[in-house]
Design a protein around this nucleic acid. Structure first.
Length: 651
RNA sequence: GCGCCCGUAGCUCAGUCGGAUAGAGCGACCGCCUUCUAAGCGGUAGGUCAGUGGUUCGAAUCCACUCGGGCGCACCA
């Protein structure tokens, strides 16, 4: 049982006689903020004071007098306005460590009510190379799956691949008109990706050409508006000043948009051969859309091309997942749900959930102005329809209890509408949750892009991380009197550290926040990084190597002695792994696990610094320290593995 | 115009659905290797928690407004 659960159950029996609902009060028992206040603190007395009409300190004293805690804690102390400070007895901590020393689960008890959770993450489009925008979903989703599984839930990871959207029309169009056969034969995915980009570029060009005069007019109007307003402006009128600023912002954004448009046009026109192609395909955007429509309508030729393209595309994706060490139980793409879509719309209609508006079949959710469009006016279905079909399939066929969607926060409105529609549609019992996350930013404060403005490819990102890690490893090992690593080991460690660095950097931020991508911080050997944790792990392995002791030899029958504050702090920290896992899963926030890992590694480093294992005063103390070391190593290894991060025995 | 999110140390970020003197890492400065991996450890400096008002025993946290920034908003996914 976790320490918190244990404490709370003891408090619960006392609080029951004082309050109807003890839940919120028990929530207020937490790890102490400051070591001076002990290990844990209970803060409920103050909020209980009004309810009971007694001073908080009196309440706290009464609770303390009735508490049965002697076997766990020193005598509780009432402090300040009514805090109850708790300190575990060192004998209790030592006994618990001995108990879990041989436990594969490191003291983490499986959940009481396992659920079947389907986690929908990564979800790239095929034919477009994966880029840094897919990183967070992939890494966070994987960490959530692993943690849920470890906690005892049944988990199905599902990659909802975009394999049926408009990009296929573009590829088909490109393939028919611009294909380079030799390139296609050699590297089909690269060639398809080139074709996609080309068609996309040509479409954008024509759109930009059309938009140009409109944007010019908009800008002129906006600028004129600013001038006129300025002319009549009363300098003392704050409201007018604000209005002016707004008009100026509008003009500025019109200017930005116009410039972007102009540069799209200029870029293409600067390339004569490209311009010739563009001129020869003036309606490329519409024609590409029509290819998509034909595919969806069951056109045999397009279907044949799709069947031909898809395996190669999936294989390319798989290569990246293999490098990242990520596996999916299912990869049911959009195409899988295509046959179910008409029925979904029929069902919504028959339940009178939908209305037709401007020719489109829509579900209107109260409080939302925007409709949830399930069938466009041209008869085509949307991703809303697919998402509904997916929900039904996951619940009725896969028997999921809970669905998690690891998707960036710009889609939050879509998911709100989706979940509410699904609830009205009859899935009230199914838990559905959008696990949203922020954007990966560059040093310039804008979404992370290459210098030329393209998305950063995931493959090159991985390569870069590994090669940077390799440089650090070489430098360190070469500095030693006799290098500890072979060429093969260095290459392997570089992968572990490089990929671990990418993942850790992502996971250690609260997922809601945008975060700034920074190579130097990501692969720093100091501070809160994967490398620091991995290094701590390798140092422990070094102790066992040096003393020529098998790690498994200390997992049973060794008494734990906590002879100094560093040992005690480390031991207590290790007992909190269970609570760390719980906290991660309560709102699906992996950064709470990175925080625990860092604190643990930090406490270990202090222990390592001041408590020699080799030169322990007694044999018993050495054994005890070996127990702590082994448990520490396994906690680090397990904790990192829940984040999808590997460790090396030697670094 | 409507809606959602954000503003915390020089930088990057935490801050556990209201709790004690607001934390960490990096950077800066000062120390520590004849001793298990110094990719380590100890210490110092650094804050008007964007601003104003409110709610109460108590606010970075809740409410209102203001300022500043980001992102969505009808047939793309």
């Amino acid at each position: 049982m976790s320490l918190l659960t244990l404490l709370r159950s003891r408090f619960d029996s006392v609080l029951r006689s004082m309050a109807d609902d003890t839940g919120p009060l028990l929530e207020m028992i937490r790890p102490a903020q400051d070591a001076r206040f002990g290990d844990y603190q209970a803060n409920f007395a103050m909020s209980l004071s009004k309810q009971l009409g007694k001073p908080p300190r009196e309440i706290a004293a009464e609770v303390v007098s009735r508490l049965q805690l002697d076997d766990l804690c020193e005598a509780p102390e009432v402090a300040g306005p009514g805090f109850i400070n708790l300190k575990f007895r060192s004998e209790f901590i030592a006994a618990r460590i001995t108990e879990i020393a041989g436990d594969d689960r490191l003291g983490v008890t499986p959940v009481d009510n396992p659920r079947h959770v389907i986690v929908d993450f990564s979800s790239p489009n095929v034919a477009k190379p994966m880029h840094v925008g897919h990183l967070r979903s992939t890494v966070i989703g994987d960490a959530i799956c692993r943690t849920l599984r470890f906690a005892g839930h049944r988990v199905t990871s599902d990659n909802h691949i975009g394999d049926w959207g408009t990009q296929f029309g573009m590829i088909i169009y490109g393939y028919r008109h611009f294909r380079n056969d030799a390139a296609y034969a050699a590297e089909p995915v690269a060639e398809l990706s080139r074709l996609y980009k080309l068609v996309n570029q040509l479409s954008d060009y024509h759109t930009a050409v059309q938009k140009l005069p409109v944007l010019k007019t908009v800008l002129e109007k906006a600028e004129k508006g600013v001038q006129e307003f300025q002319a009549t402006l009363d300098a003392g009128d704050k409201k007018a000043q604000k209005q002016l600023a707004q008009l100026q912002r509008q003009a500025e954004s019109a200017r930005t948009e116009l410039r972007a448009c102009e540069s799209t046009v200029a870029n293409l026109q600067s390339d004569a051969s490209l311009l010739a192609i563009a001129d020869a395909h003036p309606n490329i955007a519409r024609l590409a859309r029509e290819e998509t429509a034909k595919l969806h309508a069951g056109d045999a030729d397009n279907q044949k091309l799709w069947d031909e393209f898809l395996p190669a595309c999936l294989q390319a994706l798989q290569r990246i997942y293999d490098r990242l060490g990520i596996q999916f139980d299912l990869s049911l793409g959009e195409s899988f749900y295509n046959p179910m879509l008409p029925e979904v719309v029929e069902s919504l209609k028959s339940k009178q959930l939908s209305t037709v508006s401007d020719g489109a079949v829509c579900v209107f959710i109260e409080g939302n102005r925007a409709p949830f469009i399930v069938q466009k006016s041209d008869g085509a279905y949307t991703y809303a329809t697919t998402d509904l079909a997916t929900i039904r399939y996951r619940h009725e066929t896969l028997h999921a209890d809970e669905l998690l969607y690891v998707v960036d926060n710009r889609q939050s409105e879509h998911f709100q509408l989706l979940f509410q529609t699904a609830q009205h549609w009859g899935f009230e019992k199914l838990r559905m949750r959008h696990i949203s996350f922020g954007t990966v930013m560059g040093a310039d404060g804008k979404p992370y892009k290459t210098r030329s403005g393209d998305n950063v490819g995931l493959e090159s990102l991985i390569d870069e991380a590994i090669s940077r890690a390799r440089r650090i490893i070489d430098e360190n090992d070469n500095r030693r009197e006799s290098p500890a690593l072979s060429e093969e080991q260095r290459a392997r460690v570089a992968e572990i550290v490089g990929i671990g660095g990418i993942k850790y950097a992502d996971l250690h931020h609260n997922r809601d926040s945008d975060y700034t991508f920074d190579w130097d911080k990501m692969l720093a050997t100091t501070g809160d990084t994967a490398a620091y944790m991995q290094y701590a792990y390798a140092r422990i392995c070094g102790i066992f190597r040096k003393l020529q002791i098998e790690r498994t030899a200390v997992r049973s029958g060794c008494a734990v002695i906590l002879s100094c504050s560093e040992e005690r702090a480390l031991a207590l920290q290790l007992l909190q792994f269970d609570d760390a896992i719980r906290s991660v899963l309560s709102e699906y926030r992996p950064h709470l696990l990175t925080a625990w890992l860092f604190e643990t590694a930090d406490k270990f480093s202090k222990f390592y610094d001041r408590c020699s294992v080799q030169d322990a005063e007694t044999e018993g103390l050495q054994k005890s320290r070996l127990v702590l070391c082994d448990l520490m190593a396994r906690s680090l290894h397990t904790g990192l593995s829940l984040l999808g991060i590997e460790t090396a025995e030697v670094m």
